[in-house]
């Protein structure tokens, strides 16, 4: 099995593992951010360029460094490879540049965007971007399009990660949407605004890293950090039926797939589960979903036992 060293930490991984996957195995502190790569979608990745890393040593056999930064999501590890991510100042600088490009045409409408709070671009720009943008021109804008009865596409926010195109290609049958036009005019579209109508089309909402594809049954109902995530399942004939219910009070505001530490769903769910089963009685509740501490969704929620300081405890007991 090839051994790879990422930011000074060595790990042995199976043949055919990408640098990004190896880095995720090492831990989140060395894992490069990824906006377009999605483990469960074939041929995804390589577009956004945020996961670029420097390969300081190609392999044991051929120790030459790679001449350019490589996308870690699409580059396989070789035995003896040495990868620099956060430890390389040029990569940190280059990533800052990429984030600036991604934000160049992205609107600053987080306060009214439904994705805010679970948006990967927000996290990315907070962690790797700079506070100010040097872009001073008009941003590209598009009209909102309804694709199907449940999904709204707001291209203005899109960062062209191609994840939803891969979902359409690989999860649903009869792909009806793709990319039209070229360069910075390129857009995700159904071309003639044909409705996306199949059982798994709702997954495009889960894979969208930004607020370009949103759930019309949830739009403007609440903010994600005001809702309470609960694991639940039901017997579904089309999908696994394992979902997260997002409660506000007694009401289920939305249903999503279960997302892991990297923001990727564990299993894709069907439209019936996602859009039509919005009563507690439809579901078997499993328990509270643990949310990663770095996410804003964990605000005001206790994901662990509270350690109450001793002096406060005394007061409380009194």
């Amino acid at each position: 099995m090839p051994k790879v060293t990422i930011d000074g930490r060595t790990i042995e991984v199976p043949e055919g593992t990408t640098i990004l996957q190896a880095a995720r195995m090492v831990g989140p502190e060395v894992a490069p951010p990824a906006m377009c790569y999605y483990t469960k979608l074939n041929t995804s990745g390589g577009y956004c360029r945020t996961c670029i890393v420097k390969v300081a040593q190609g392999s044991e056999k051929d120790p030459r460094p790679m001449p350019k930064p490589v996308p870690s999501c699409r580059t396989m590890v070789m035995d003896g490879m040495v990868v620099e991510n956060e430890t390389s100042p040029e990569i940190v600088e280059a990533r800052k540049g990429v984030v600036e490009f991604l934000l160049a045409n992205h609107p600053l409408d987080c306060p009214v965007c439904d994705q805010a709070g679970e948006c990967h671009l927000q996290d990315l720009s907070y962690e790797h971007g700079s506070a100010k943008s040097r872009y001073e021109f008009d941003r590209r804008t598009f009209d909102k399009i309804d694709i199907g009865p449940y999904v709204q596409l707001h291209m203005t926010r899109c960062i062209m990660c191609y994840r939803c195109v891969k979902v359409a290609e690989q999860i649903t049958d009869g792909r009806v949407h793709g990319v039209i036009n070229r360069g910075d005019h390129a857009e995700i579209s159904t071309y003639v605004e044909q409705a996306i109508d199949n059982d798994f089309s709702g997954n495009v909402i889960d894979v969208c890293p930004v607020g370009a594809l949103t759930d019309k049954t949830f739009r403007f109902k609440s903010r994600v950090w005001f809702t309470k995530p609960v694991d639940a399942h039901r017997d579904c004939t089309t999908c696994s039926g394992k979902v997260v219910l997002w409660y506000q009070g007694e009401e289920v505001l939305r249903v999503t797939g279960r997302k892991d530490q990297w923001g990727e769903v564990e299993e894709f769910i069907c439209n019936e589960c996602r859009f039509e089963k919005k009563k507690t009685s439809d579901w078997t509740i499993e328990g509270v979903r643990t949310i990663d501490r770095h996410s804003v969704i964990s605000q005001g929620k206790y994901a662990r036992d509270l350690e109450i300081p001793a002096h406060t405890k005394k007061k409380l007991i009194k």
Partner: peptide
């Protein structure tokens, strides 16, 4: 180059348009 960029990867898609502007 702005006109001909395919729009797949972000540095080229956004960068060529920005440079032109």
């Amino acid at each position: 180059y702005h006109h001909e960029s395919c729009g797949q990867c972000s540095p080229c898609r956004e960068g060529t348009a920005w440079m032109e502007k």
